[in-house]
Every structure is written in C-alpha cells, then in structure tokens.
Computed example of a mutant assay.
Amino acid sequence: MIDTYATFANDCFADRTVLITGAASGMGLETARAFASKGAEVVMCDCDEDGLQHHSAEIRKTGANIHAVTVDVSDESSIKRAFDYCDENLSRLDNVVTCAAIITAKRLFDQDWAHWQRVHAVNLFGTFFTVQAAAKRMLVNPFGGNIVCIASDAGVHGGGGLIADTAYAASKAGTLSLVKSVARELAGKNVRINALNPGPTDSPMHSHIDQSLKERIAANLPIRRMGRPDDMAAAILFLCSDAASFVYGAALDADGGSMFR
C-alpha cells in the first residue's frame, strides 16, 4: 500500500503543535495520526469522549505526544475550555484544524428550524468560534500559525438531499466565506488560514450512504473512486506545512474531480 505521507519528512512537524476538532473518527482522527507520525504534539478534541479516549490512547502507544480534550463545538464555552487547556499545557499553538462537523441529507420540505440550527451550530458557528480562539493565540505566537477549515465541495455546487442537504451545503458555503473574510482581516499578521474542500469521502461521516450509492458516486468521479480520510489528511498536512507558506485564504479542492464534472 502506498504511504500517503511519505512526501513529508518524519520530523517536519517536530516541536510544533496542532489542535484538531472532530478527532475521534474519520478525517479528524486520520489527521491526528498523520500529524503525530510527523512529530507534532497533538491535541485531539471531540464530543465523543469514549472514542476520543480510545483512539488517543492508541496513537499515544506509537510514542506520540497526544492530549485528549472533550469538546462540543456547538457550545462556545466548551471551545473556550479547550483553548484554555492549550494555554495551560502547550508552549504555544501552531496549527488548528476544524474537522468537527455533521452531515445531513434531508429533502427540502423535511428540514425545519431546529434542523438548521443544529447543523449550523456545529458546522459554521463552531468553526467560527474555534477560528476566533485560535487566531487570538496565534497573533501573539512569534512563529505565527496556520488554520485549516474543512469545508466541502457541496459548499460550492450545493447539496440536494441525496448525499448532503441544503442546510449542510449552506453551512459549508458559509465556512468558505468565513475563511476568505478572516484571511482579509488577518492579512500581514503571520497567521495563515485556508480551507479544504473534500469531495465524497468514504468515512464514518458518510455512513448514511449505502454501498450501491457509493459505487455510483465513485463511478461518476473523474478519478473513479471515493476519497479516503488519508487523502484529506495529506492535503491538511500540506496546508499546514512550510511548503504552503504562500497559500493564503485559499480553498484547496481534494475532490477527485467532482468540481468539474
């Protein structure tokens, strides 16, 4: 099997830190593994306390420096506690990746007010307050920092209710605008922020998609397969690396070609 991260030196994130939300499964978990394998000190955050403790212990066995902090990103006070933990336990905060999200696939007339509130509380509001807390700390970090927000190809071409619905797509479109807006405000201040647009990815987040639909999705992608969590983690490593020092306020498409279908 190809080592997705072989391009990156094993110590390329040595002496650097990263906080990752949504780190108990899927893309967030794989991103935690990827950073740990490259020498980073990793703060794994998730609302799934059992999954968080299990997987953080698993990664810790490799010798990595891992912290596990239970966080509900739909609760601003919970986000604050996570960053307070970083202030108390890390020498500085270099990278933040906002993987925490929920995906929903409801038809237009099945979506009510509570549904939109729930989706946006996690996907958009949670992302904003995580970015806000990260930027506050990175602005006083002499090394600056990097923020990567996970958006979606659905934020560009819409949902539709089969894989993702209107509420989800709108929250991810909001995330893309958030990244552009924050990038404008932080210009010249040594803090980079970028977005990642994953395409259809075979991960626990897409457990609502049955196998036959996954096969149809893969067949319709130019690359002829769905994405994997390690595809996304590799793109995140790049965006946080020194190789991406001139990438700013951008949205990187890691979508198997879904954007130009």
Score class of each variant (00 low, 15 high):
T4V: 11
A170M: 03
L176A: 14
L124Q: 07
L221Y: 03
S25T: 11
R216C: 01
I20F: 03
T31N: 01
G227I: 04
I2Q: 14
N89F: 10
C240L: 10
A82S: 15
G161N: 03
G174H: 10
G145M: 11
L139D: 12
E58C: 00
L162R: 14
G22S: 01
D15T: 10
H115E: 06
P204R: 02
N220G: 13
S78G: 05
G51M: 00
A9P: 13
I193Y: 11
Q53K: 12
A9W: 07
G199M: 00
C240I: 08
S203L: 00
G160P: 00
K38R: 15
R137G: 08
T4G: 05
T98S: 13
G126Q: 06
I236W: 04
A32W: 07
A68K: 03
Q111N: 02
F8P: 09
N141H: 10
T31K: 01
V73M: 00
A40M: 07
A134T: 07
L93H: 11
G199P: 02
D110V: 00
F238Q: 05
T201D: 05
H54D: 13
R184Q: 13
P204Y: 00
D15E: 14
K180H: 14
A164I: 01
R224S: 15
L186T: 11
N197K: 08
S78R: 06
I223L: 10
K61T: 12
D231L: 15
F129Y: 14
T98C: 15
G22P: 01
D153L: 12
D87C: 13
L221M: 06
D46A: 04
I193S: 11
N141G: 13
L52H: 02
D15L: 08
F109V: 10
A34D: 02
